[in-house]
Amino acid sequence: MQKTYYDPADLRKFGSITEWSEELGNKFFEYYGKVFEEGALSAREKSLIALAVSHVVHCPYCIDAYTKDGLQRGITKEEMMEAVHAGAAIQSGATLVHGVQMMNKYNKLSM
């Protein structure tokens, strides 16, 4: 058993999750593959969205995977970093918008 929670080599083994729950695993990977095909959004656009979300959900495997995917698609580092900022802005916005709740509560409790 490894001594750290994350091992980059584990990403290669992602497919093995189907071994312990075949039907659900297969359904997930089929769905996952379908999501990233060309559609109303281009595969390139979806790759950038995936990269931004990877950062927001703090998934190191996903960050590795979608940085590489972006390189393969010819996505520039400037585009990648802007996508990360888009994710970060929503995440910090999501924190800050709760400030309104705090203000509401403060005002309600104050005379």
């Binding site: 390189l71 393969q72 698609r73």
Partner: peptide, 10 residues
Amino acid sequence: GAYLPSDQEA
């Protein structure tokens, strides 16, 4: 770098 080319047409 250490990655594969993507779709040739794109």
